[in-house]
Simulated assay, not measured.
Amino acid sequence: MSDYAFRPITRADLAMFKDWLAQPHIDGWWGDGGTEARLVEEDMDKDVVDMRIAQHNGTDFAYIQDYNAHAFGAPQYADQPKSARAIDTFLGDPAFLGQGHGAGYIAARVAELRRHFPCVLTDPDPANLRAIAAYTRAGFVPLDIRPCEDGDLVQVMRHA
């Protein structure tokens, strides 16, 4: 049994979410906390993105979301199956860094997703070596580097 659980994010979590985004280890990989929290809050009442707080033995420590890879017209996923899911995530609580939790919770969540979706994708920044390493340890394999909707390059990865 996994030590990881995933509960839906709530408005009560937004202050914690913003605090996590202000942590130095996340700097530059996600937008500022206020903007990202506003976007998450806007999406809470829609049925497009499944947004979760990851917990380890009951302690909140990370954020993970998944959605249809084609829902937002992401060109980096254009050649992937129509039913593919894409994930985005960050480990927020710095006390959980360097202990294997990144790969652990990603693998646990992807195992849940793979029961319903045969293809799970992600697209970290190619310079975010920590994220790429965690995704690799969680069973993702790199496909190639492609431009995303804003023109930035991303490392497209698919769960094996």
Score class of each variant (00 low, 15 high):
His25Arg: 03
Ile26Thr: 00
Arg7Glu: 09
Asp47Thr: 04
Gly33Glu: 14
Thr59Ile: 11
Arg130Asp: 08
Val49Asp: 12
Phe17Leu: 01
His116Asp: 14
Trp29Tyr: 13
Glu112Ile: 04
Asp19Gly: 15
Trp20Glu: 06
Leu39Gly: 12
Asp3Val: 12
Glu42Lys: 12
Gly98Asn: 10
Tyr77Lys: 08
Ile106Asn: 07
Ile87Pro: 02
Phe6Gly: 13
Asp93His: 13
Ala86Lys: 06
Pro81Val: 00
Arg137Val: 09
Ile26Pro: 00
Asp13Met: 02
Ala22Ile: 08
Lys18Trp: 01
Asp47Ile: 00
Lys46Pro: 04
Asp79Pro: 09
Trp29Gly: 00
His25Glu: 08
Val49Trp: 01
Tyr135His: 08
Ala108Ile: 01
Arg137Lys: 14
Asp150Ala: 10
Gly73Ala: 05
Gly31Phe: 03
Asp3Met: 11
Pro75Gln: 04
Pro75Ala: 08
Phe90Thr: 02
Leu21Trp: 06
Ala62Lys: 03
Val49Thr: 01
Phe17Val: 04
Asp66Val: 01
Met44Arg: 06
Glu36Lys: 15
Ser2His: 09
Asp19Trp: 09
Phe140Gln: 01
Trp30Pro: 02
Tyr77Ser: 02
Pro75Leu: 06
Asp47Phe: 13
Ser2Asp: 13
Arg115Lys: 15
Lys46Arg: 11
Phe90His: 01
Asn57Leu: 15
Pro75Ile: 08
Ala95Arg: 13
Asn68Met: 05
Leu113Ser: 00
Gln80Met: 13
Val156Cys: 07
Phe140Glu: 02
Asp50Phe: 05
Asp152Glu: 12
Asp45Asn: 15
Gln55Pro: 03
Leu14His: 02
Pro81Gly: 10
Ser2Glu: 10
Met157Asn: 02
Ala62Asn: 03
Arg52Ser: 09
Gln23Gly: 00
Val40Phe: 14
